[in-house]
Design a protein around this nucleic acid. Sequence first.
RNA 1: GCGGGCGUGGCGGAAUUGGCAGACGCGCCAGACUUAGGAUCUGGUGUCCCCGACGUGCAGGUUCAAGUCCUGUCGCCCGCACCA
Length: 802
Amino acid sequence: MSYNFKAVEERWQKVWDEKHAFEAKEDHTLPKFYALVEFPYPSGAGMHVGHIKAYSGLEVVSRKKRMQGYNVLFPIGFDAFGLPTENSAIKYNTHPRVLTDRNIEKFTSQLKKVGFSFDWNRVIDTTDENYYKWTQWIFRKMFDKGLVFREKTLVNYCPHCKVVLSNEDSQGGKCDICHSDIIQKSKEVWYLRITEYADKLLFGLDKVDYLPNIKLQQENWIGRSEGAFANFKLTNCDENESLRIYTTRCDTMFGVTFMVIAPEHPIIEKYRDRITNIADLDAYKEACAKKTEFERTQLVKDKTGVRIEGISAINPANGKEIPIYISDYVMMGYGTGAIMAVPAHDERDYEFAKKFGIDIIEVISGGNIEEAAYTGDGEMVNSDFLNGIKTKKEAIAKMLAYLTEKGIGEKGVQYKMKDWAFNRQRYWGEPIPIIHCPHCGMVGVPYEELPLRLPDMENFEPGEGGESPLAKVESFVNCTCPKCGGAAKRETDTMPQWAGSSWYFLRYCDPNNTEALASKEALDYWMPVDWYNGGMEHVTRHMIYSRFWHHFLYDIGVVPHDEPYAKRTAQGLILGPDGEKMSKSKGNVVDPNDVVEEYGADVLRVYILFMGDYGAAAPWSPSSIKGCKRFLERVEGLMYMAKGNGATPKLESAFHKAIKKVTEDIDTMKFNTAIATLMSLLNDIYDAKTITIDELKLFVKLLCPFAPHLAEELWSRLGETELVSLSSWPVYDEAKTVDDTVVIALQVLGKTKDTVEVPKDCDEDTAFAAAMTSEKFASLVNGKTIVKKIFVKNKIFNIIVK
RNA sequence: GCGGGCGUGGCGGAAUUGGCAGACGCGCCAGACUUAGGAUCUGGUGUCCCCGACGUGCAGGUUCAAGUCCUGUCGCCCGCACCA
């Protein structure tokens, strides 16, 4: 083997660096292509093979687009604020700045060793004050527009990390960072009013090209539902007091036989003295508060609750008095925290009514309410003016009109999505640029004072009460109010991890701008992102958040489009050799650096893309990677075979077919079959035992996006002085991708018996004549009655005989 | 429970969207070259009762023709989870 991949790869990486080969051009007249990958969190552990897969997809697309003449922006950066770094800072008593710089350096060197064609001139770091200045600037703009508020609520709190977590960061009752159980804690926290953008985020999905499952996940996350609000009058309460509910099924209102409110519903406190069993309610409430998220989800089947004695409600549809219960199957956080219960037509209400012996009144016929709730469609019964209506849609419309006319309800929309809890009580994050003034209230830090820098400190331990370490820095906390000039205190919370990544793709367009987050010209030219690829785990959080920020920036005229990402795809996981998800505890982690050391970056890249469907999970195979190594070595071997110019007749059509297939497969992310095509073409060349220098150059170009180091090496050995990475992508001649003859299958009664070569596009008679030259086929047909002949051009000839 | 996806050789995976199932690679078998082979090259490799038949989780159906479409069923994976 004369191919020293280590020396070759180092050499070309150096040349790319020196020539600034992959930097995006400032010429805005060129057609542009903006490819975005999710920038990494620079952890101390270094890169994972998952990172390589995540970047390799658009790396190949970008390299091909560049060769096709596009001005490509393929940037990289570091999302470097966050808890793991801060926790190591505490553990090793080293400043997070030092650790972050060290980790970024490590990641940079690893990324360069893989040969990614990133634009190294536009690297961003979210912890750089020139970057987070603009994160703070966007926050301030949101504050000005009333999208920022503070509220005391029960929050998800991680006792281990000592931080408040958003709903998104505490799914399943576990902390997203340390996986310990989260608890509910009452605290005043910052919120961003993302719910105000719920409809824009939902309807914006209509105009973007995301994979269907990505769109669906976002739709479910936003969780829009259309229904009605209605007010139920209360007895033994103040005049006009009513309980407001939200329902999607106002058509069933005549079937309401009780109401249920969340245990925390404020009406209980308001009428404490009129409720005769307040002690029972308090006891139930306390029991609910003690339940962990886990217990609540496990006890789904078993409904519990307590009837409120002393006050009751009036069903506005029929004037009947109905009981009110408290139960934890109704959540304070959705709708109004109160529901009208229709046991005949709702499974949960049915279960509750059965347990508490409450009346069940059928209002939609078609089911058997003796046995179960009926949730299907049917004719309305027992419903006064709705009787006889046969569709849900019509009944809802009529009831809505009634509620509106009587002034007891109206149409309404609800979302599952909650406002975004936007804070952390930790050091290593963007300081929230707000000042608390005893006279003026909350005042934004003046724009000209941004960035509001993180103060230097030595001890980053969070306070026991969950307050930020910044609270200990008096010089940071004490300040003057920008409005009245009086003594004031600075906010000490920092922003959550998601802040910096909510707009980073804008900064890449113009990373050094000191006057704006990016210039208008740069944004006009580069945005929107043409293709964004990343992990499925980010499609509901990072993507929803960043789309929200981008819609906001559009509304205030900072960016030229509402949707930031024109297209979004996702790569699948790389599993360990055992087929399990890679994890340190299972000991099945593959370190990309080891692979680069043993096989080189080209082999690593080719193997990762060859493993299988890019969007699907696939296990790492230590032996399969050898096939990719052999492939590249055999490609190198072509150097000793190539001679002459022009096209080899035997190979010409194979080359044109391969150019077509590889070009198309890259655009549709079918990298595995693109590589398989190159392998097949290579086999054809070895079978032919000949290849011209022109053809080898063509092969090298096709290989370049996948194995760029080897491609550059061969290109230069073939006498070229420019980079193949910056050469032109081959084009194929459609006419040369088709052969003059085709092999068709000969079938009798639908079973393939033989094949025969016929002229391309020949007619049925010609094909039949050719078919009869097959002895096997002819013997099965002769002497039989031909019932039917089925001929599909260039595909099959099928004959039905008796 | 609801939503989405997937079941194809010993393994990873292909299949122009209804038209020769198993491309490409791994592994395996045989041979060559070798002092040696976890290197390289050549040939073979779905299964079986091997001139034939059977084969894409299972059972049916539509069709000249089904991995692909329809009905039912089993298994696995991923989201959301009492959303009113």
